[in-house]
Design a protein around this nucleic acid. Structure first.
Lengths: 197, 197
DNA sequence: ATCGGCATGTAAACGGTTACATGATTTA
DNA sequence: TAAATCATGTAACCGTTTACATGCCGAT
């Protein structure tokens, strides 16, 4: 018996958000592939990682699809660059992605696997590794807090209308801060547990 | 000029933790591919997802490598199954993975991309989506809390030595609980921000 | 009879990672 | 003169996702 083909037209639901992350970043500010790669090591990169190879490949595809436009920018003292900005098609693609629901993300949490695995090996041996992770998270927290102070100083409410772009960047950053604080507290819990053996 | 080959012997640092998640799960309790797939929808699956196709493929590779052993188990009223358990080589592989450091995981956070993208579309239109996510997280929290009550009831300290396997499973579950609580609080923050426009 | 659960797979497409590659300019 | 930064790629590999596929059993 033949199986039914049941997906007529709609291509790839979910997944593949790199395009969208790039669109958002280019809407916030146009830039070259190189500049995007830099941003993916900072702001945007805190919740979506990508390497320059990936970015160049995807950028090329997006240009072919008419999602972005490139402009040659001659520079002095530096190689020329191709500055990308979002075209109407790209803006529309982002908009339709924003309107389709995505599944609450499935987690990949190596450290949790390690912690449960430690029961069959050497629990105390994991302490150093967990401490390393705790340090990484306190570093990131400090970095986020510094960024918050720098970019989002408290403003007295003077009736000026809120800037959506800015407010939304801030609430995402607050999410990062909450995440790091939660992780640090949890890793303390893990350390206390490991040291109990 | 020729580039130097600079990785002599060690294959793939990082990545590829599915093997290790399977090893941990099989150490906790031997089982068939099908049973593992079930577990990856529950307990272990809360911090590492995998489909049955992936599991069967990896299981076969692990069997070839001598990491796991299969035992044919005839069943009545059901198809026979191949029950896997961890071999010495697998235990050793897990142990060496546990001892090598891993990078604190890089996050992939679709929703954060959406939230920043909403500034260029319709911020208010995201409210329903964020509410959906909030509901998913409260459901998962309730589920975790029920599991905690069921599997980890409070025990008066009567001097019996702590069970590492159990304690470590519990601390991982507490991590899941802390994560869901953090997410719910943050999503409330996001909703308040979105409603402010 | 059909549906859901048990049980095990193959194959294609896609996304991400790593290694390799080039070449200019500024700074130490 | 060496290292770091700017700038842009190609190729191979590997892991993940999705679609397709089979067949038995028990319950409704």
């Amino acid at each position: 018996m033949r199986a039914l083909l049941c997906n007529p037209l709609h291509s790839k639901i979910g997944g593949m958000a790199l395009e969208h992350a790039i669109l958002v970043s280019l809407l916030e500010k146009p830039g070259s592939g190189y500049e995007l790669a830099r941003r993916f090591e900072r702001s945007i990169g805190y919740f979506w990682t990508a390497t320059h190879q990936q970015i160049y490949r995807v950028l090329k595809r997006m240009e072919n699809d008419g999602w972005v436009r490139a402009r040659e920018v001659p520079q002095q003292g530096r190689p020329d660059k191709r500055e990308y900005s979002v075209a109407d098609l790209g803006h529309a693609a982002l908009s339709s992605w924003l309107h389709e629901p995505i599944e609450p993300e499935s987690v990949r949490h190596d450290l949790a696997v390690k912690i449960r695995g430690a029961a069959f090996d050497d629990p105390a041996g994991l302490v150093r590794e967990v401490e390393r992770h705790r340090r990484a998270h306190t570093d990131r927290l400090a970095h986020y807090l510094a960024g918050e102070e720098r970019d989002f100083p408290p403003v007295p409410d003077d009736g000026t209308p809120p800037d959506a772009e800015r407010e939304l960047q801030h609430v995402v950053l607050r999410g990062g801060i909450a995440y790091e604080r939660m992780m640090i507290a949890w890793l303390d819990d893990v350390l206390a547990t490991l040291r109990g053996f």
